[in-house]
């Protein structure tokens, strides 16, 4: 879509705030609405917008599916692994009190870490799903729109 300069400029203006907003939703989720699920979706939406304007091949160069699949698994492992760590430290599975001296700090640490895992999995899964569907369609010419 080389000729659509309006789309390119608008997407260029929109994508950075979307990514920053996703990070805000992710790491400010303990204080405001949001959390890993919402942040992951917004983060993926920024990449989807990039792909809608520049094509699926440009997206897979920025975010190779192999890396996305590995990160999706890693997110689940971060969440599940946090539970294993708290068990090793002598608390229940996902009992965050074992993570620190101060109980509230320990809880907040646990929540931040597992929400990070959630966000990572959701963002990479949404993006991988989009790539899986979009990479099977014919390449559209500008005139086909």
């Amino acid at each position: 879509m080389e000729h659509h300069s309006i789309l390119r400029v608008v997407s260029k203006l929109l994508i950075p705030p979307m990514l920053v907003y996703a990070l805000y939703v992710q790491f400010h989720g303990e204080y405001s609405p949001g959390g890993g699920f919402q942040a992951g979706v917004v983060f993926a939406a920024a990449f989807v917008l990039y792909s809608l304007v520049h094509g699926i091949d440009a997206l897979t160069r920025v975010a190779p599916p192999r890396v996305l699949h590995a990160l999706a698994g890693l997110g689940v492992l971060i969440f599940a692994g946090t539970g294993v760590v708290t068990m090793a430290l002598g608390d229940a599975y996902l009992g965050y009190y074992a993570l620190g001296e101060h109980p509230q700090h320990a809880q907040e640490w646990g929540i931040v870490v597992v929400e990070f895992g959630v966000g990572m999995t959701v963002a990479t899964v949404m993006l991988s799903l989009f790539i899986a569907f979009a990479s099977h369609t014919r390449k559209l010419d500008d005139k086909d729109w």
Partner: peptide
């Protein structure tokens, strides 16, 4: 927990096991 967003506290701490299940479903 000491965080203002009760929804996040329920989701990630009180019902953390449920949320783990949801993430596995997404995966």
């Amino acid at each position: 927990i000491g965080i203002p967003n009760v929804v996040a506290a329920v989701l990630a701490s009180y019902r953390g096991f449920d949320t783990l299940g949801e993430v596995v479903v997404v995966f």
